[in-house]
Each structure stands twice: as C-alpha cells, then as structure tokens.
C-alpha cells in the first residue's frame, strides 16, 4: 500500500476530511459525530456549506464550537449554540420527524450494502470483542436522509457478512428499499484511507468511485472482503487544497489530534 501521502504534503486523515467535506455542499442540517466527522463538518461550514447547522445527539442544534470538541458532549458545543434540547426532543422532533439531511456514521464492520456493525465481533452471547453498541446509530441510519460513512479500510472491517447488523443500510433490493417508508435514504458515500465509494442506484451496492493519489486498485482489493463494483468513470481523489489544509491545520485541529 502506498504511504506516499506524506510526500504529497498532506496526511491520509487530511485527505479523508477534505474529500468528505466537499460532499456537504448545500446541506443544511447535519448530524455530527466526534473525531473526523467533526472536523469535516466544521471545514464544510467554512468552505462549501456556510449555512450548515451542526447537530449533536447530545442535544445541541446549531453548535459553534470555539475549540475542537473531544467528545459529542463537550461543553464548547453548548456555549453559543442556537438551541440546547432534551435528548427526547433531539431524537423525536429533529431526527425521527425528518429534519436531518445528512449524518455521519462509522463502525467496526461494513458490508457491500452499507449495513454497519458497532455491536459485537463474534457471537453475541459469547463475544470475541464487545463493541460500544448502537448509541444513536440505529435510528440515525433509519431517519437521516443521507448517511456518509468515514472509516479505515481493511479485510476485517470491509466484510462479506457482518457479525451483527446494528444499523441498516441498503437491502440489496431497491424495490424493497423504496417501499420502506423511512425518511432515510441510506448510505450515499463511504470515504476510507484508500478510496471513495458511492452506492449503485440499481443494486444499492458500494461502488468504487475514486482512488486516493498513489493508491492502486489492488490495494483496495487487498483490503476488502468482496470483489468491488467499480464505476465506469473511476477517477483519482482530488487532493486537499491549500485553503482546506490551512483551515484544518490552523483552525480546526491545530494540535493534530485527529489529522497527524
């Protein structure tokens, strides 16, 4: 696998952040997670989505964090926000009623249809690794109109078959998905440390869209548990711009907590 990222003047994390932020153009209400998604959303707010409202499951709508939050319940999210709500209001009125345009999810395992496992590796009753569980992910996957996934890619995380389905993605049958009657349209993109993916309209299957600079198709194949569907116009991921790198390094994560 290429480790050329550093030679190109940016880290893998910085590339993942920039590539994800560009997908938020025109988005209004975005459910933010901690870590990379948090930097992604703050970058998008300063570039492609100036009207982006940052929503946190801790009950914050319209956050304006003055420092990089280290958890989704950081006090900097409450101070100066548009609204602090009860968690019932947040999940019922904002999420379940369909106000959330985009949400970020990740997981220990993802399958080719974007179903996610954050519950357990191995058997539920006799787990090899007990993971955190759903948190809000299950209902976020169902109600946010679009799901963006950010996670590192490997054989053990991009799997043919999940050990546990915590949060539903596409079913593989678009007619079934259209009849679900949920607000959620399921995952629309996956950004990894190697590549970016969309989802095929006809099959709901993850489709390789761009390879990061220096990454070969074989690197991608070697790091997933199925043979990937490849877009006919497979392209290279556009590297982060000077402006994007400046914002990430000087404003959003000056300590390099998530981007080194």
């Amino acid at each position: 696998m290429s480790e050329a990222g550093a030679d190109l003047g940016y880290t893998k994390a910085e590339l993942m952040i920039a590539a994800s932020a560009r997908q938020l153009g025109g988005v209004s209400n975005c459910f933010v997670g901690v870590g990379l998604p948090n930097i992604v959303c703050n970058l998008a707010q300063r570039t492609v989505a100036p009207d982006l409202q940052l929503v946190y499951e801790s009950g914050v709508f319209g956050a304006r964090p003055e420092r990089l939050p280290l958890s989704i319940g950081d006090p900097t999210l409450a101070t100066g926000s548009t609204a602090v709500t009860s968690m019932f209001d947040l999940f019922a009125f904002y999420l379940q009623a369909g106000l959330i345009d985009v949400a970020f999810l990740g997981g220990a395992q993802i399958d080719r249809h974007g179903n996610l496992n954050t519950t357990v590796i191995g058997d539920y009753a006799d787990p090899k690794v007990r993971l955190p569980g759903s948190g809000g992910a299950c209902e976020i996957a169902i109600h946010a109109r679009q799901i963006l996934v950010i996670m590192r890619q490997a054989q053990r995380s991009f799997v043919e078959r999940l050990d546990f389905r915590t949060s539903p993605g596409h079913s593989g049958d678009p007619a079934h998905d259209a009849a679900r009657g949920w607000h959620g349209g399921g995952p629309s993109s996956v950004v990894t440390d190697l590549a970016t993916y969309g989802f095929d309209d006809a099959t709901g299957e993850m489709t390789l869209r761009t390879l990061h600079p220096g990454v070969r198709l074989d690197d991608v194949r070697d790091n997933m548990g199925w043979e990937p569907r490849i877009a006919s116009d497979l392209d290279e991921t556009r590297p982060p711009s000077e402006e994007e790198l400046g914002l990430i390094r000087e404003e959003l994560d000056p300590g390099g907590v998530y981007t080194k």
Partner: peptide
Amino acid sequence: SHFGMVCRYMAGASNLPFFPIRSYYESDI
C-alpha cells in the same frame, strides 16, 4: 439504542405501559 433508552425513561416517567418509536427496523438489536 439511545432513542430506545430515552423512551424507556419517558414511558416510566409518564406512567405508560410502553413507548412506540420508529427505530430498530432491519436491525439485529
């Protein structure tokens, strides 16, 4: 899930026998 736990407390606080939510569809939970 989070919403499930919130609504368990809501049902408990409101003297209701259960609380309905739109969650858990097609999940193994």
